[in-house]
Design a protein around this nucleic acid. Sequence first.
DNA 1: CAAATCAAGTGAAAAATTTAACAAGTTATT
DNA 2: AATAACTTGTTAAATTTTTCACTTGATTTG
Lengths: 212, 212
Amino acid sequence: MSGEEKKRIPKTTVYRLSVYYRALSNLEEEGVDSISSADLSEIAGFSAAQIRKDLTYYGQFGRPGRGYVVSHLKSQLRTILGIDRDWSVALVGVGRLGRALLAYKGFRKQNFIIEAAFDNDPEKVGKEFSGVRVYHQDEMDKVIRSKKIEMGIVTVPEEVAEIIVAKLIDAGIKAILSFAHLPSIFSNGIKVNQVDLSIEMEGLSYYLTHSK
Amino acid sequence: MSGEEKKRIPKTTVYRLSVYYRALSNLEEEGVDSISSADLSEIAGFSAAQIRKDLTYYGQFGRPGRGYVVSHLKSQLRTILGIDRDWSVALVGVGRLGRALLAYKGFRKQNFIIEAAFDNDPEKVGKEFSGVRVYHQDEMDKVIRSKKIEMGIVTVPEEVAEIIVAKLIDAGIKAILSFAHLPSIFSNGIKVNQVDLSIEMEGLSYYLTHSK
DNA sequence: CAAATCAAGTGAAAAATTTAACAAGTTATT
DNA sequence: AATAACTTGTTAAATTTTTCACTTGATTTG
């Protein structure tokens, strides 16, 4: 009531909220307009109790006896996840992977707008890939600040990843998705999500090795 | 002693083993030959107690007063992770992302050998990308079985991902890395790791929205 | 309109995971 | 050779996360 009510939110809850959001988007497309936690459970792959518990960290979105209104819950999740607005994104490293991501339609659909790309190859600087202009890495600070970019995607080779991340942070970026492995020293107040293909493959290898 | 000693291993332990492995690889390159859990802790970003605990699920690899011999622990982790051997991999979906992954040197370096690629575009079938031959999707079962491929990487559009995964499973594949979002119905005995860019970006969005 | 059914929200219990603390083994030092 | 300084492996404690069970609100049915 009065005073802050900060319940500790499990780290994995946010991930699950994204999964619920995706499931609800699909349900909406299928024309389903309301759903119970039990039914959502089957689609999302987490227990009904888990779903209800996750949601109540943020409020009350359903009605006893009725379940959740799909469009309403979806909209609430958009707000909770912060995707009820556009986000400006910079991509650093216009190699094959970088260009694949620049061409990926999913980002724009989700309101993540890649406003600028950076590379140090003079061949690429000044060009556009999938409609995104490539700037020289030395212009990162200037361009990021002038375009008020808030997120970074890092697709540079491993060897320079750390330097690039430092540059992004210097330019005021506080949230980064890196495809290069980084030594795990995250400055405080900076969120770095890593997509590490080697680790993913090793997870598969471990599974196959220990499951027979 | 006698009887199986199956301690329950936390789900996140395997992920951390990969991180330790990566840290040890770097240490070895730097010529460090032994390290304490306390020092490894700083590099890997997990507590020393956590590291020791994770390792003891699999055996005793260090010596009191001495720490761990880098080359030995690294080698033990290779065995535990199952990466002390080659793995044959198939990649399905030779779009931009698929081709970027085919060109990625890291897989081969880690003993994940992409032996075949699949697509349904007649333009691509029969060609090679980064030395990997592209087969038609209809040949998946035949090629996967004849080449004894054990893992799959899925880089097809979202709409067909589910069908492709089903085909891979039919062909005997039990471990899959998917870049397309999948409805989370994993058949039993099949490991599916998903790399979902939208969810990663939403994690960043959530962080920025709730951290100010 | 009473009874039965459904289903969210929630506090308590259970389970899982992490951290802490320490006994025991190892090495270095005096 | 005894003492001090390290550092693992491990048991116990603390914390975190998930599941359970139940109360309450809502709807439907007889």
